[in-house]
Nucleic acid binder design. Structure first.
Lengths: 201, 201, 201, 201
DNA sequence: TATGAATGAGATTTCATTCAT
DNA sequence: AATGAATGAAATCTCATTCAT
């Protein structure tokens, strides 16, 4: 008697996730080209052939990883939308970023290393650009609401800052004071400080 | 008439530079693994065999590129050392960074895409870490001299910011207001502004 | 209530026929190697595993198809045997061939494409050679009875002609005047014409 | 000192021809899918890699073989064009066909086995159809000039006959009386015989 | 110095067949 | 009887490196 449809789906889902997890780890460490399907299969403890039962090519594996990445991004935007207070939004933007760095090292490394090689991952670049634009638009509204004189540039400033924190942190994790930096930033962007800056103009 | 030793060396140097230039362009665009020796040879308009006459492996080519990169870095530190005024040093740090982004796109892209894949370029990573540490130490002295309350974090802050500007700019050059950002930053880190901040503590 | 033995056998027979039909279609269109077991299973709307319940290998499927092919051939010879008049036999040889071309395209295409690759289908080749020889022997008797001066060559002539009609017809069905050719041949090989030729010698 | 351009071209030409010859032999015997690049490389006594230096894919190898095949066909048409006497043209059509069967077994087998699997070789099929049409057009003029009552069908008749001779001959070379058939046909299509037929209408 | 033919190891991919349920 | 996940061998193809000239 064959397995039921549900059982098959369960198996597929698990194995798929298993492959993606193994692939993410390896891609992040050794790069896309530096990781072979063989490597992935071994790490996932399956045969090479089975990997192709789930993803029709190596490219499709990395595509799936990036899709998941931006699905998480979309979720983050939804959370942001649900919050009304701009000071709170600002705080969340900072805290979420640091949380992401702490919990999603591999994802971030992969993202970072690929984003600068658009020929390697055209699809990912497009997704990223789209997400980025949407995010910036939404945050610009927040910065306007906060009363900044030059909200666009202030947003770009903070955006670059947070990205750079990721770069510097992952460049040498043991050397970069991530937590200290979070406190430092939350202080600089606290409600009191912002009001002080805005009113001093 | 045989060429003189000098002429030979001149030719070798030029060909070498030619190969490195072609390789840099391709690596930056298509990645290390995505670029074949054949691609490089074609771009440099030489034969594959000749490339091996100059570099004993593909790895050595990328190593040479990174060496050049950090030689430039060392030169920058020398320039910084020659300047005494801390306000001027700070201004130079910012201006030099923006200048580099504008003039050395490929170098930066290559650097950025490799730095997050340590297994791909162990040697480069080490060089970078060494340079970085030295640079931060020197700059911390500057930030102390400027009178910042928390010079270490303020330096980290500016460092992250400048790195993030690179990330955001190269992510989508047409979309990022690079020049506006430079002016914005030079304003924020002008002598007047710094003195104001420092004195308000 | 369990099914009876007869019902089971009925199901098996139908499924088997179903698989063979699907396989024939695909083999004819995409070739033996170009058709996967998966393709066949999908076309037959069963699972891969079930196909192996019926045929122990892909090879056995094509073997079964060829067996059926030559069973039909044997039936044809039986029909021929039951007819006594040589003029009628000749007419039947021609008409049957054209009928076969019109009704069994896939069978013929498969046969034609395989027969010239003996290494691919040794068993089929042998069966074909055996059938062929038997057929020629029987037909030679007919041609002798018709009074041809050189019955062997006349038979070879007509045999080649009919094979060639198949080749030319299937090469481009819309371009070849199959029906016209049938009429043309039946005329050339009519009783009157044959008597005329035979008597003119 | 590198080889001269001419030397390189000479090498390429020879190796290319070498590969094509080995491939033709194997394809004819074992079929396209039944022959691996490895097989070809071994037969040509080169490495797999080198095969790809000359042909970018297995498909391109078979394409090249078919191209050569139809180039020869074009040459044949040219020869035919240079002859004016229709009786002579007819004789040549027959003699050339038999000559081809005798001297180009592998080419013909390959052609025959592929022509019925259009999905395997779309390009070849197109080339063949084009050649065929052109050839038939030209020959129809010949058959008209010979005075046949139904030139189109008579041409189709002879065309099918010659194709069928190929089929039957290659099906079992030791069994088919090729030379006898040639004499038989040249007799049937001799000037005297044709004039007799044409005038008896 | 210079060329590109040639190699061979290893990568991606396919698929007949087996297996657990 | 029936399913499709899983395997593994073999196929196609790539490319850094070497070699003959």
């Amino acid at each position: 008697m064959p397995r039921s449809k549900e059982q098959f789906e369960e198996i597929r889902k698990k194995t798929k996730e298993n492959i993606l997890k193994a692939a993410l780890k390896l891609f992040a460490k050794k790069g896309y080209h530096g990781t072979s399907i063989n490597d992935i299969a071994k790490a996932a403890k399956i045969s090479k052939g089975l990997a192709y039962n789930y993803f029709e090519s190596k490219q499709k594996i990395i595509d799936a990883i990036f899709e998941e990445y931006f699905e998480e991004g979309a979720q983050f935007i939804e959370i942001m939308d649900s919050i009304k207070d701009p000071y709170e939004k600002l705080r969340l933007m900072i805290e979420f970023t640091f949380k992401y760095y702490e919990e999603n090292e591999e994802q971030w490394l992969l993202y970072a290393s690929f984003i600068f090689q658009p020929e390697v991952l055209k699809k990912g670049k497009k997704l990223a650009a789209k997400f980025n634009q949407k995010y910036l638009e939404k945050m610009e509204e927040v910065f306007k609401a906060l009363g900044f004189k030059n909200p666009k540039m202030e947003l770009r400033f903070l955006g670059a800052l947070l990205d750079g924190v990721g770069v510097d942190y992952f460049f040498d994790k043991s050397f970069f004071p991530l937590n200290e930096m979070k406190i430092f930033l939350l202080e600089k962007y606290s409600k009191e400080e912002i009001m002080r800056i805005v009113n001093s103009n």
